[in-house]
Write a protein that binds this DNA or RNA. Structure first.
Lengths: 157, 157
DNA sequence: TGGCTATGGTCAAGTCACTTTACCACTAGC
DNA sequence: GCTAGTGGTAAAGTGACTTGACCATAGCCA
């Protein structure tokens, strides 16, 4: 089952038809999925081909650096066992380490390795890349508006 | 492991810290996840508690009605076997049926049942609800701008 | 027409990112 | 110093996926 990895998303896949126009749900989902695919694509191209979507969640903003596993788990809304499984993978692959928390003998803290930091840099570059494309598509002024609106949506509350 | 299902997303979870500001990736992801959670929440409240996030994917815009399974699979970027598994579940739960395609003896077509149509209505209502909240938060003019920008982002190309 | 490739779907087996349950180690509050 | 709460781990099970193999029909072109 080959993935026809063409452009991030195409109009033809989601036509406005008798169904009515896409709701805000779809309008958010489609570009977000495009970003996700781009991140994975660039990571795989640049030597981080042992990462997949599940690992990517751990690297999500604002990243796992110095976080406690249980804190990360609740941030990602998964059980701490599930998160610990992912951390184990990422540790085995050399992206991070789990170190004892000096202030709490029960706890651990995630420490990114150099490889982990590099992966995050690739992720950020991938997002920056797609931002540039969207900026060209919408024009700089409107793209800045979009970012501001999304920021204001997430910010308060 | 209780889910502390509070507000859709909170600033405190994703502070702007030394990490730099959130990129467009996070800014899209957070509200999209909020929409997802709201959809599931409303579905479960209103009697569709046998649906989960995986099933929800099948109902994604523009919905499975009259679609061929293989078409749906490529739209969702999963294998047709995986999609067929989900369709089997949804058929068993009474949300849809797989009927032979009159124009192609190999193919099938998805037909939503009344229950399936009701579920989609609940989903649309849930999204409309969160749209209203965001409209109040941003103001009607800015919310309209946001929708337009997202639409223009998805539309061309 | 007849054969060849492409397309749509299914069966079977395996994988892995999760969940639930149970438990241990340490912390913090009185 | 108890005791309730928090952080982490172990073990077992689940289900949404994958790959590989296969069959049936469609569509094309010699």
């Amino acid at each position: 089952m080959p993935k026809t990895s063409s452009s991030p998303f195409t109009k033809s896949e989601y036509p406005d038809q008798a169904f009515g126009p896409p709701l805000i749900g779809a309008l958010l989902r489609m570009p977000w999925e495009a970003v996700q695919r781009r991140m994975l694509e660039r990571l795989h191209e640049q030597g981080f081909d042992d990462l997949d979507a599940a690992h990517l969640n751990v690297f999500q903003y604002p990243g796992p650096q110095a976080a406690k596993p249980s804190e990360l788990a609740s941030r990602l809304r998964i059980s701490k066992q599930a998160l610990n499984y992912l951390l184990g993978e990422l540790e085995r692959l050399g992206y991070l380490e789990r170190r004892p928390d000096p202030d709490d003998l029960r706890a651990k803290r995630v420490a990114l390795t150099r490889r982990g930091t590099s992966a995050i840099a690739v992720i950020r570059d991938a997002v920056a890349e797609i931002e540039t494309e969207w900026e060209q598509q919408l024009g700089p002024r409107r793209f800045a508006q979009l970012r501001k609106l999304l920021h204001d949506l997430s910010g308060p509350q």
